[in-house]
Design a protein around this nucleic acid. Structure first.
Lengths: 142, 142
DNA sequence: GCTTGCACCTACAGCGGCTAGAGGATGTAC
DNA sequence: GTACATCCTCTAGCCGCTGTAGGTGCAAGC
């Protein structure tokens, strides 16, 4: 039987995060000691490892919830899990494309900075005038 | 004189976002009509355009605040603005590197999925066992 | 048995960067 | 003068945690 702190260490999670996962129903309510402290078994260790690993790969908690539901039905077809992973891959590729455009723009901005006075600063100039940009980079976020 | 809605349209911002920027001190308190509605001039249009463009390039609101402060002192050296941009570039490059690692892992996961039953699903298998991964992808977020 | 001191408990607030909604006032075109 | 879009303030919610306050449990050393 593991305390929440031990489980946290074993999975590289913060204690509060485990309690948060319980609160939103991602982790089950565990057994308790006589004094009311949470006690975990190996099932919970596996489940939390799964969750953490999926998080590291960028899956949302909702996607993880789906994947966990799926893994409770081993007789089902693999198609749904596959679709979730493909969706995630697509998102990652979109974010990559956008970040690459940003990198290009930022590099140019920095390269052109002559190190003079603020009034001639290319950085500020480019930020002031989007038409100087080579790419669109329309979207904000992620 | 522009209404908040017109300013929003011209800059591709939501009305609420403009009020939010005012609330956190990123945009100044504008003049008001007799009835109490906000009225903006060209200065505010420029400032908001600057903010939005910097946001599109991924700068945080704090970084943008610094850049705005700097651009109010045109006699200062350009070094600080340059540093902020370089910091941003570095962040973007770090995120790129991590996303590329994720893409590799996700691609492998999806490629190896044979389309059979959930019990043989490579997607779930890889998520269950981190040791199957080629990269570390330690960090969560961004 | 008793104390120390860390780990645990609940409950709630806060982060960034918005976004949405309620419920009401204003402004403008006909 | 009336219809209707737009504006106002205020508050709460999104994601995925993280931190804090104020209190309790537990195990080890004496």
């Amino acid at each position: 039987m593991l305390t929440i702190g031990t489980l946290a260490k074993k999975t590289g999670t913060k204690v509060q995060t485990i309690r948060y996962y319980e609160q939103i129903g991602l982790m089950p309510e565990p057994g308790r000691s006589q004094g009311g402290q949470r006690r975990y078994g190996l099932d919970e260790l596996d489940r939390l490892s799964f969750v953490r690993h999926a998080r590291q790969l960028g899956f949302s908690l909702d996607a993880i919830r789906e994947l966990l539901d799926l893994s409770d039905h081993p007789e089902k077809s693999c198609a749904e899990a596959d679709a979730i992973a493909r969706r995630q891959l697509k998102q990652v590729e979109q974010r990559l494309a956008r970040l690459e455009a940003l990198r290009t723009e930022l590099k140019r901005m920095v390269r052109e900075c002559s190190g003079g006075q603020m009034s001639d600063c290319r950085v500020l100039e480019v930020l002031r005038d989007h038409s100087e940009c080579l790419t669109d980079h329309q979207e904000i976020g992620a």
